[in-house]
Simulated assay, not measured.
Amino acid sequence: MPTFMFGLPLHPLVVHAVVVLVPAAVIGAALVAVRPRLRGRWGWPVVVIAVLATLAVPVATSTGEGLEHNLPRTAAIETHAELGDQLLILIAPMLVCVAALVVIDRLRRRAVGLATSSARHAGPGTMAAPRIRDGQARVALIVLAALTVVFATVSAVQVVRIGDSGARAAWGSVQYVPQPRPAGRSRD
């Protein structure tokens, strides 16, 4: 992965994909996990966003490592790099959990729909009416939903920690201080 393009470091540009996609995936995954009604319509779009977020992480770390080798070694940069390397370990399980949640939910809904349809055609109380056994699927959905929320929360916290350490590495002790507006200038 190139480190510079047109004389500019790629890492600050590429990292914006992580900064946008990971929180979007985290929010979507948490909503799909805790609101089963959202899974049917929004489950697969959330999975796609989570895939894109997961793929953006190694690209950001790769460009960051290239930039790291072109900068003087500091404790702040090392901390930022260590935190950045940990994000993939957190977001990949979230992706797996939310994808499994959506797949199992889809299969369960399909099975319940087919069983209900067969039962209607066979008539109530007949031997041909299948029993709907989805207890295992429900347990799996609950476990996957809980794991999705846990990994989403941890991923969100990690993105904030990475961003904070990156800002500290780039800006050091520089702090933003609002400047007074000149008299006669509007706020536009």
Rank of each mutant, 00 (worst) to 15 (best):
L90P: 06
A119I: 08
A33L: 14
M127R: 14
P93R: 00
P72D: 13
R138G: 09
G66Q: 03
T54C: 07
I27S: 08
V47R: 07
R187T: 10
E78C: 05
R120V: 13
D188G: 15
V160L: 15
S165D: 05
I27Y: 09
D188Y: 13
A156K: 00
S117K: 13
G66K: 09
A17W: 12
A115L: 07
A137E: 09
I27T: 15
I162W: 04
P12M: 05
T3W: 01
S165P: 02
V159C: 05
S165R: 00
I49N: 08
V154N: 09
W44D: 14
A76F: 01
V22S: 04
V26F: 08
R187L: 13
A29L: 14
Q175Y: 05
Q136D: 13
V14C: 05
V51N: 06
A30M: 11
V174C: 02
L71S: 06
G166N: 04
V103T: 03
R73C: 08
L114S: 14
E68I: 08
P130G: 03
L88A: 12
V143R: 01
A76H: 03
R181M: 15
T3E: 02
V177Q: 10
D134E: 11
R109L: 14
R168H: 05
G64A: 07
E65K: 10
L10Q: 02
D188T: 13
P58W: 09
L38S: 06
W44A: 15
D134Q: 11
A115S: 14
R41P: 11
H69P: 07
L71Y: 02
R41D: 15
A128S: 05
V51S: 09
P2F: 02
V26T: 07
Q175M: 09
F6M: 13
A56D: 07
P178C: 10
P45W: 06
V154F: 05
T153L: 13
V139D: 04
P72G: 07
I27W: 10
A53I: 12
R133Y: 10
L141V: 03
N70R: 12
Q175C: 08
A119H: 06
S62D: 15
G172Q: 01
H69G: 12
V26M: 05
S186V: 10
L147P: 00
V34S: 13
T74E: 08
L147F: 02
A50E: 10
L107V: 12
R110N: 09
P58T: 11
A115T: 15
A145L: 00
A128Y: 07
P182N: 15
S165Y: 03
E65M: 10
A111S: 14
R120I: 08
L95Y: 03
M94A: 10
Q86N: 07
G135S: 06
A92F: 12
A92H: 08
W42T: 14
L52Y: 11
H16R: 01
A24W: 12
V154D: 06
F6V: 15
T148Q: 04
I49P: 12
